[in-house]
Design a binder for these strands. Structure first.
Length: 510
RNA sequence: GGUCCCAUCGUCUAGGGGUUAGGACACCAGAUUUUCAUUCUGGUAACACGGGUUCGAUUCCCGUUGGGACUACCA
């Protein structure tokens, strides 16, 4: 079997979205599993769409996701350069090879010519108005013009493109590892532009030439490429590279969570979840799109979730590390149908991975939030907080968001609790309790609990009846982590002052 | 419009000619938690439709419908 060499080949046109990460992931999984090579190639042949910073962003994103590049842009390798804009001469040479072999031709048509052609075909009732077998002989190209005319045009520098001459009356077969055999009549394929008038190749040419030169064994890419795969196969044949042709696998698309259509940035924005791996700032508009990283998603969680979007191991196991994924991944188990993106499940994965971390690791995450708020906190306290908050968080920043009261006394109180639970019984218990706590040298959860119980017992009031009122006075909230532990962490002085503040501020309802 | 791809719970999916169609997320209920969350238990919920083939089809074939992609000198 040939060496497994796969590539992830994005265009540097903006932020890297999760569909791209999934494509990269599947490539990576296959490479690692087979001791193969993961290559990063930058497909920047459209200078009009080039976005500065996008390439660096892609490299950073992959690194964050834990997808390691063995060869290619940013790392180098035996087939450099890996940036297509720097390989112009190579494509020119291969385009010439096609020209010489009669597999391609020069075309001089203007935009208006092309438009006129489409209108003409449409008017004639032709189903697809393409530049191809049925129309190429009516156009201005090296098939219709004399050699002298063509040479003249070339010499005077007339703008031209090189088009592929699609073979007639052929059935072109694409063997797809996911979909099986896909057969297309060559008459359905148009004479695609191979070299643009600016001297750059199109995707089709660059892609085929590079995959051949870089000895790519498997092309794993999104399903949007399936319609052009027959063209690519035809190109391999014309080059005489049929035996070196890579195997194809076209991945099902990521769809919008609701309704229909391909998942887009717009949908994600609308529904309030990220779509890019990292924060992305559009250099033109300055608009910032929030990334998964900055939204608090752990790369392991995102990878695990993405792996399961369109693939599954066939076992009940849901949690997989990258190593485990490498172990069990197989192209055969990739599904065919498009997949709707569900942010709920992503969050569930995040929760799972967050919980699996030690309290010490988690405390570091809390400390980061605290640093941003310029709040100092001992490591011991942070660990204690994380221990009781652990089961309640989905994101790292939840430790801070949901646990602000550990650092700030409440300034407002949950109204529904005030009206339902802040009654004379509660006020009686709390005022007595506060005085008792004040006498204590230090508070532990156990001590504060027994103190509270003795107060309620002496007043003949059920502890459960006033517990929410107590929580309200300490945290301002209706719910939260274990209250006794919370009081232990906050300390007796603060507990008293908070209760006293609440007693002074809130009026008992009945 | 044309070409190609696809079709199991709301979502991700397992399965496969004879099954009580399985799991996960979400949702709902009960238990535990003197609150909430967690945890545990249980529940609601699917083979798009119509023809074949077959003793039998959700599974195989065809069609319909529905959805998607592509249809640029973008990738």
């Amino acid at each position: 079997m040939r060496d497994v060499r796969v590539r992830f080949a994005p265009s540097p046109t903006g932020g890297l979205h999760i569909g791209g990460i999934r494509t990269a992931l599947y490539n990576y999984l296959l490479a690692r599993q087979n001791n193969g090579t993961m290559i990063l190639r930058i497909e920047d042949t459209d200078q009009g769409r080039f976005v500065p910073g996008a390439e660096e962003y892609i490299i950073e994103s992959l690194a964050w996701a834990g997808i390691k590049i063995d060869e290619g842009q940013g790392v180098g390798g035996p087939y450099s350069p890996y940036r297509q804009s720097e390989r112009k001469e190579i494509y020119k040479k291969y385009a010439q090879q096609l020209l010489d072999g009669g597999f391609a031709y020069y075309a001089f048509d203007t935009e208006q010519d092309l438009e006129a052609m489409r209108d003409r075909l449409k008017a004639a009732g032709v189903d697809n108005q393409q530049y191809g077998i049925t129309s190429r002989m009516q156009m201005s190209n090296s098939l219709t013009l004399s050699k002298a005319e063509v040479d003249h045009l070339l010499n005077v520098g007339a703008p031209y493109v090189i088009r592929f001459k699609v073979p007639e009356n052929q059935q072109i077969k694409v063997i797809d590892l996911i979909r099986g055999e896909v057969v297309v009549e060559s008459s359905q394929i148009d004479d695609k532009v191979l070299m643009k008038s600016d001297g750059m190749p199109t995707y089709h040419l660059a892609n085929v030439v590079d995959d051949y030169l870089m000895k790519i064994s498997h092309v794993i890419r999104g399903e949007e490429w399936l319609p052009s795969a027959p063209l690519h196969v035809s190109l391999y044949k014309s080059f005489g590279w049929h035996n070196e042709m890579p195997q194809f696998a076209h991945l099902p698309l990521l769809l919008k969570p609701d309704g229909n259509g391909k998942l887009s940035k717009r949908d994600a924005d609308k529904m309030g979840f990220p779509i890019f791996s990292l924060n992305w700032t559009d250099p033109k508009t300055g608009e910032v799109s929030k990334g998964f990283k900055e939204s608090g998603y752990l790369p392991e969680a995102l990878i695990n979730f993405l792996a399961f979007l369109g693939w599954n191991p066939g076992t009940p196991q849901e949690i997989f590390s990258m190593e485990e994924l490498i172990d069990v991944f197989s192209i055969e188990r990739i599904g065919k149908a498009g997949t709707k993106f569900d942010i709920h499940k992503t969050q569930w994965y995040n929760q799972q991975y967050l919980r699996a971390k030690s309290e010490e690791e988690l405390s570091l995450l809390l400390m980061r939030s605290l640093d941003a708020e310029q709040i100092s906190c001992s490591k011991e306290k942070a660990i204690k907080i994380c221990a009781i908050m652990k089961e309640r968080v989905t994101f790292p920043h939840d430790f801070w968001e949901l646990g602000k009261f550990f650092f700030h006394a409440p300034v407002s109180f949950d109204e529904s609790v005030v009206s339902k639970k802040w009654n004379t019984d509660a006020v009686n218990v709390l005022s007595t309790f506060s005085k008792e706590v004040e006498t204590l040298d230090e508070v532990t959860a156990d001590l504060v609990k027994s103190t509270l119980e003795s107060v309620t017992a002496s007043l003949g009031i059920g502890t459960g009846k006033i517990l929410q009122a107590l929580r309200l006075s300490i945290t301002g909230n209706a719910s939260g982590p274990d209250l006794m532990m919370t009081m232990e962490i906050i300390g007796n002085k603060e507990v008293c002052s908070r209760i006293n503040y609440a007693l002074a501020t809130l009026k008992p309802s009945a």
